[in-house]
Each structure stands twice: as C-alpha cells, then as structure tokens.
Write a protein that binds this DNA or RNA. Structure first.
Length: 230
RNA sequence: CCUAGUGGUUCCGC
C-alpha cells in the first residue's frame, strides 16, 4: 500500500509538520520493495532538497533495491557516493551488497566484499554469515561454508536455525545426506529446534536419493514433534 | 526499543 503510505507522508506537511529522515527512509523502502526504484530515487532527491541529509539507512535501502535488480554498477556507485559524503557503511550495507552478489552466483565478488568489510573494521554479524553461507552452499562450496561456521563461532557468533537449515539444504542438494543428517544431530545437540523448513529440506533430500523409507521415518518424527506440515 | 540486510519443499515458467 505504498500509495497510501505516500498520502500519509504528504499529510505530515499538511499538518504543518516536517518529515524526518526516518519518514523519508520508510517511504523510500516502500518504493524499493514495490519495485519502483525510480520513485525511490526521486524521493532521495526530495530529501536532499530539504535541510535533512540521507543517512546509512537511505543508502542501504537503495543499494538493496539496486542489487535486487542486479544493477551492481549503480549499487557500487551509490556505495562510493555515501563514502564520499562521509557516511560509514555498516554491517547491513555490506551484507546487502554481499547478498546481491551471492544471488547472482558471484560468490567470489561476495567474498571480496566480505574481506573489504573486515579490512574496514566492520563486524560481520549473524545475518552476514548466513548470507555468505547460503551463497557458498548454492554454488556447491560446502567446505568453505562449513569453514565459515567455524569462523563465526570463533568470532563469538552462534549459528542459528537459518544457518543450519541453509547448510542442511546445501548438503541435501549435493546429495550428501549423511552429512546433512549429522548437521541435524548437531543442531539438536545445540538446542536449535528443527522447524518444518529444515525437515522438508531433509525429507526432500532423502527422497531424491531414493531413501524414501528414511524420508517417511523423518516425516513421522516431524509429526510426533508437533510440527505441522504445510 | 520510529526506518534498511539472510534460509526450505512442491508446482510452473525461462
């Protein structure tokens, strides 16, 4: 309902009030999410026409929009622009770019951004790692993916349900069901509950390998655990 | 703790 959001945004001025940079960013994100990047950039220009200044949120939202359209040159240009303006890209900004490259299958570029991030002293968080691990899994580089799990652990971050499910799915897609099942065990040991997403990844992986009986056993375990199949 | 970034199955299309 971006159109309605815009109306409310316009109400702000009609009431004699002024939108803040947060108001701008929120609407801008709405435009980007609805695929209207042009309107997003128009709003950025409007923002620059006030006495407000775009912040890290403004740039991260736009960079994300550009990445989702695979416009990496533009995304990098915006990244440079924010740096020139003295803004410091944070973990979200970097993760956004990393995700963009991962989704394009450009894992090498994604890893380069990750290195840049470390060099600049920006700390990767759980989402950064999950993003990279997903990228690595999707291109079949399970070894490096598991290496990143060690790395995040060294950095004091704990792998969560998404981390493990991503890895389980990667193993399943590579036909490495036994490793996938070991990860499941490890998850359980660490107190991370499997949900229907994780179970479905395993069940489908077992089916693809012809292990239908194991798949059914797992489905029953899932039901017994009170997890609703969708 | 006003706003931004990450995961699965099936089917279909390319």
């Amino acid at each position: 309902k971006v159109k309605d959001a815009k109306c409310v945004f316009d109400e702000i001025s009609k009431w004699g009030l002024r939108p803040t940079v947060v108001s701008f960013n929120t609407l801008l994100n709405g435009y980007c999410k609805s695929g209207d990047l042009e309107e997003g950039f128009r709003l950025k220009r409007a923002l620059e026409g006030t006495r407000l200044v775009p912040d890290v949120f403004t740039y991260s939202v736009l960079i994300n929009g550009l990445c989702k359209e695979s416009r990496f040159d533009d995304a990098n240009q915006l990244f440079d622009e924010m740096c020139r303006k003295g803004l410091v890209p944070n973990d979200v900004t970097f993760t956004t770019l990393i995700n963009g490259y991962c989704k394009m299958g450009q894992i090498d570029l994604a890893m380069e951004i990750y290195q840049q991030m470390l060099i600049k002293g920006v700390k990767p968080d759980l989402i950064t790692f999950n993003t990279l691990i997903n990228g690595l899994c999707k291109c079949g580089n399970l070894g490096e993916a598991r290496e990143l799990i060690s790395e995040m652990t060294r950095k004091g971050l704990k792998a969560d349900k998404i981390t493990y499910t991503t890895l389980i799915d990667g193993c399943c897609k590579e036909g490495d069901l036994d490793v996938a099942l070991k990860i499941r065990k490890r998850m359980t040991e660490e107190g991370v509950e499997l949900d229907n997403v994780a179970f479905t990844a395993l069940i489908s992986g077992l089916c693809r390998e012809g292990r239908v009986i194991d798949a059914e056993t797992l489905l029953r375990e899932m039901l017994k655990a009170g997890i609703k199949p969708d």
